[in-house]
């Protein structure tokens, strides 16, 4: 008979480390999807996922069982991703000056006909990545959670551990930061 999550967690806490494996198996897709939002390379994604699971194992004693395990794990994953962004912020890629031909074409098409430029184009996705890479860690986190994942301020507050007013302030600053970067692109390319 398959054991429930609560039983697996209780077993791990009693010293049966092997009971942790079904939890890794079940929730790794969510952890990897979260890591892919913030990492640039597959090797970094792997590192983040490993870090999340190691922390989860070490801190399992602090899981109270009041909320689902998945929520607790996602909080841990988001905070680990934020730590990762902060520790790698010196490696933030520089500018939009070295856009590929495809990215240039996509932007050109957007300028001429904003509605016609396709959203699923590889070039558009690369532009999004470039934009996110140029944001500060806090701005990237809040833009990802608020604008891209469409989460509420309350949810972001729970995920990040920031207060609701702090989330609002950071969201305001993040949007300003994003517009500043886009203004720079527009200036470099079209002025």
């Amino acid at each position: 008979m398959e054991r429930t999550e609560a039983e697996l967690i209780a077993a791990v806490l009693k010293g049966d480390a092997a009971s942790f494996e079904p939890l890794i198996e079940k929730y790794s897709p969510r952890v990897f999807a979260t890591a892919r939002r913030y990492a640039r390379r597959e090797s970094e994604i792997d590192d983040i996922a490993q870090e999340v699971w190691l922390k989860a194992y070490q801190k399992l004693g602090s899981f109270r069982g009041e909320a689902p395990f998945e929520h607790w794990l996602m909080r841990l994953a988001v905070r680990t991703c934020y730590d990762f962004l902060r520790s790698h912020q010196r490696n933030r890629e520089a500018a939009f000056s070295d856009l590929s031909e495809a990215e240039d074409d996509w932007l050109e098409r957007f300028v001429q006909q904003p509605g016609a430029s396709p959203e699923d184009a590889e070039a558009a996705q690369q532009l999004v990545q470039r934009l996110l890479l140029n944001l500060s860690p806090a701005a990237r986190l809040v833009i990802t959670l608020l604008e891209i994942e469409d989460r509420s301020v309350k949810e972001i507050s729970q995920l990040t551990g920031w207060s609701a007013p702090l989330v609002k302030v950071r969201a305001f600053r993040a949007r300003a930061e994003m517009r500043k970067i886009l203004a720079k692109v527009a200036k470099e390319k079209y002025l």
């Binding site: 494996e21 890794i24 999807a33 904003p114 999004v128 996110l132 469409d150 994003m178 517009r179």
Partner: peptide
């Protein structure tokens, strides 16, 4: 170029293309 439109478009692109949830083999 309207920056607000470009911003909206890029956010829409990011929303339309969520990251994959594949897990490398034998990760567990």
């Amino acid at each position: 170029m309207k920056l607000v439109d470009l911003e909206r478009k890029l956010i829409a692109v990011a929303r339309a293309n969520p990251p994959g949830d594949s897990v490398p083999p034998s990760f567990e």
